[in-house]
Computed example of a mutant assay.
Amino acid sequence: MQNNYVLLNNIEHADLRVQEHYSVENGDGAAAVMTFPTEFENIQREYPILLRKNSATDEFQAVTILGLQKDENLFLEAGQEGNGWGGDYVPAIVARGPFIIGFQGTEDDRGETPQPMIYVDLNNRKLSRNEGTPLFLEFGGNSPYLEYISGVLRTIHQGERVGRAMYSALDELGLIEPVSINVDLKNGDKYELSGYYTISEERLNMLEGDALHALNRAGYLRGAFLMLSSLGNIEKLVARKNALL
Rank of each mutant, 00 (worst) to 15 (best):
S150G: 08
Y197M: 08
D184F: 13
R203Y: 00
D171S: 14
G174E: 04
Y145H: 02
M166V: 01
P134L: 03
E201W: 05
E201K: 12
Q158Y: 12
S180V: 09
I156W: 06
N130F: 14
A165T: 09
A165E: 10
G140I: 08
V183P: 04
V183Y: 08
N187S: 14
E202R: 03
A165M: 12
E201N: 11
L212C: 06
G140N: 11
G132C: 01
G188Q: 13
E192F: 02
A169P: 07
N130G: 10
L207N: 04
S200W: 03
E192T: 15
R203Q: 05
N187P: 08
V179D: 06
Y148R: 12
E208K: 14
Y145L: 00
S168A: 09
L212M: 08
L193W: 02
E131W: 06
P134I: 03
T133M: 05
L170N: 00
I176R: 00
N205Q: 15
G209N: 10
E208R: 10
Y191D: 09
L146I: 00
A169V: 02
Y191R: 14
V162G: 04
K186W: 13
K190Q: 14
E177C: 02
E160F: 05
R164Y: 07
L146W: 00
E172Y: 05
Y197R: 03
E177N: 03
G195C: 04
I199T: 00
E147I: 13
A169C: 05
L146Y: 01
L146C: 02
L170F: 06
E208A: 12
V179A: 11
I149E: 04
G188W: 06
V152I: 12
L175A: 03
R203T: 00
D189Q: 11
L146Q: 03
N142Q: 14
R129M: 07
T155F: 07
N205D: 15
G163T: 01
Y197E: 03
L173K: 06
G159V: 03
A165D: 13
I149N: 03
L212W: 10
F139T: 12
H157E: 15
K190A: 12
P144G: 01
S194Y: 07
I181R: 10
A211F: 04
A211K: 13
A165L: 13
N142K: 15
V162Q: 11
T155D: 08
S200A: 08
L135T: 05
I156M: 09
E202V: 05
I149H: 06
Y197W: 10
L193Y: 02
K190N: 14
E202Q: 10
V183A: 10
E147R: 15
